[in-house]
Design a protein around this nucleic acid. Structure first.
Lengths: 223, 223, 223, 223
DNA sequence: CATGAATGAGAATTCATTCAT
DNA sequence: AATGAATGAATTCTCATTCAT
């Protein structure tokens, strides 16, 4: 009943799990817990997620939970570590974005991949959002993820703009802000449009607004 | 120690307070509680905010708290109601945004006011963000606030764009997403730039990207 | 909205009220509080009765309450004192109950008056029932009330029975038990019959069972 | 220090306990809690009974309590369910009560069993009495228990009486009222006689008064 | 490895009673 | 005489984490 198909988690697991050799069964149990955590996160959000919910979904016990994770936060850290990796990888694929059609397509494609990632890891990213208000670790990890993308973006944006008035760092964060939050609205059903349409519009806005792209009516199969 | 100067709260208070006639002292106490809640919200966020923290800051007792608010949520509802009013008022002031310099200035000014409002009510808005994940009332009130601004924006955006490809609703939400989240980054110190700079850049991005404005090097007193 | 018309309360009031001279207005306020207490007792029962409810019904304030009564219990004590007086008076009117028709009528009449009293003071008597489980004063006062009636009954019963096997004290308490609880069922709607029917049957049972009366088909105006 | 020897509880437990498989230890703990509740009920009554008292007597923790019962009421419901079962079973054993010596013995025996049951479950039954004033569930369950016995009694009473004046329903409730309340007086020490004497007298009163039995001096081993 | 059971430190809320006008 | 406001002890319930088998 999980809402989205899930890619394989490359996860290294929580603290206790790293001190031991995990055999096949152990790995399986850990996976079950991580998957369950995603499901619960999705359904309840970070703060409302209870260890009890997680072990119930994973069909295992409290005791077992602590065999693999030092505590609740440890589990979310593990989940977030995965996201961080993926996001970092994604950030690296961001090439220069020119003002022309090619630039548009490049940006559109990158945003598409970002979107996939968000949809996949949505619950974790939302959890991060929720958690970061507090001073805890999870929050800090989230900031690192943010930094990764922002850094890549700043580079691309700086290349595309020479205005002395336009602050690339702000523009980069504005970009992340926009796409992150929009997806958030999407997943939380506050915005209800097809993902493709969302991406088209966002790409246009950012291409034109941030990367100096030229606005043009785009031909669409007359629908 | 409250981080930001505070405007007068027009608040009507929580459920229990509405059933009684409040005398001068009562009103003062209610105000103290609302202010205290802002402070705590700012420091701890919604979920970590304890009634105990609030009454400590307000230098009053637990019992007193429940004389004015039915529970924690009730208090936040009262706070959010204020925000909702202010946001609605702000939304109404959004006129047409043309592609020229005047449009830029109009947008810049509006965003400036939005920014003031966000800075003022930041803690409440962040609390809303945290809360909306759950199914509770506070979350739903937040959505209404969102809707108010989005509706106003859609109108302005539609006037400024005739592209059949560009979805004004998405663009409107993208706009809110960007400015909301950027301020969030600002307040949570994940972004550290002067507010003026932030506003300049955001205005440019949105004016050009969303309202069809023309990009131009803007003359700035050589700083 | 009080369920039953109320006789005048002869009440002397609570401790604080007895230390002062009550003027007309003071007496009126005290009366309002006592009446309100009856109403609340009826609606909520002893344990669920809140001072707040009482002062709301009496349209006065918490502060005022404690001007007349030392505490909640004090008020119930005052109410119960009234009942005690009435019950004592009633107990005195119990004459000998013979086994014949006259005895039946005498008993029927006495039970009728008891019933009136119960209906009138029902809330207080039920409160006593609720309260007596605990060790508090109210409970003890209730016992005295019980003792008064039982003593009177023992006398009548002893006159009517010479069996060495039949314990008049038990029979007396059994009598009270039956009529008290039956009225309780009646007021709490667990029993739904006209009061007259209830009294007829109870009188028969007790007359025959306790007072040695002879059972006979009684002629009733063919209704 | 429990006042009465206790039969085995067949209890199914509260809501949370029913959702899980209880192992031996779990069952033991649940039993401890139920027993403790009886003890506390006896000592303090329903309203004054604190979860804290119960867990202290059961020598366990607050958390554990809520592992087995959703709340205090849930526990009492469980207890009351047991009583309900036993009472229903008892009600079924009530055969016809004739006016002769055999009828007397039959009634005496049934009342004896009722008495045993009451003494055993006294605390629970008293708790029910206390609780029923309020609108809660426990109260309603109590009414069902009452109905069970009353129904059985009505049948027996109707067989034994043909009077058109005598209402069997009232007589049935009067019967229950008498024996319930008398035992209540007994347990709350407002009445202090040997149980056997109490039963003898009550049997006589009811046999003669309700079941048309003939009064006779009963020969008792000259004591 | 796995599990059910137990724990106890919080957190929210209620309400009789006292206080200050 | 009256009142609104304030208090804080008492109580229930939750849930992350530890324990024993």
């Amino acid at each position: 009943m999980a809402a989205t198909p899930r890619r394989k988690l490359s996860t290294r697991g929580g603290a206790p799990a790293q001190e031991r050799e995990l055999r096949a069964q152990g790995k399986k149990t850990m996976r079950k817990l991580l998957d369950a955590a995603m499901t619960v996160l999705e359904k309840r959000g970070y703060h409302a997620a209870r260890v009890d919910d997680i072990v119930k979904v994973a069909r295992t016990s409290h005791g077992t939970f602590y065999l693999y994770f030092a505590n609740k936060e440890d589990l979310f850290r593990a989940l977030l570590a995965d996201v961080a990796d993926e996001v970092a990888a994604l950030a690296e694929t961001l090439g220069p974005i020119g003002p022309d059609e090619a630039g548009y397509r490049e940006l559109r494609s990158w945003l598409g991949r970002f979107s996939d990632l968000y949809v996949h890891y949505g619950p974790v990213i939302r959890a991060w959002t929720e958690a970061e208000v507090e001073g805890d670790d999870v929050g800090r990890m989230g900031e690192q993820v943010l930094t990764t993308v922002v850094t890549a973006l700043i580079e691309s944006i700086t290349e595309a703009n020479d205005s002395d008035d336009f602050d690339p760092q702000v523009a980069a964060m504005a970009t992340v802000a926009m796409i992150e939050r929009l997806h958030y609205y999407l997943l939380s059903r506050q915005l209800d449009v097809p993902r493709e349409d969302l991406l088209d519009t966002v790409t246009t806005v950012l291409h034109v607004g941030v990367f100096g792209g030229t606005r043009r009516k785009r031909r669409r199969s007359a629908s």
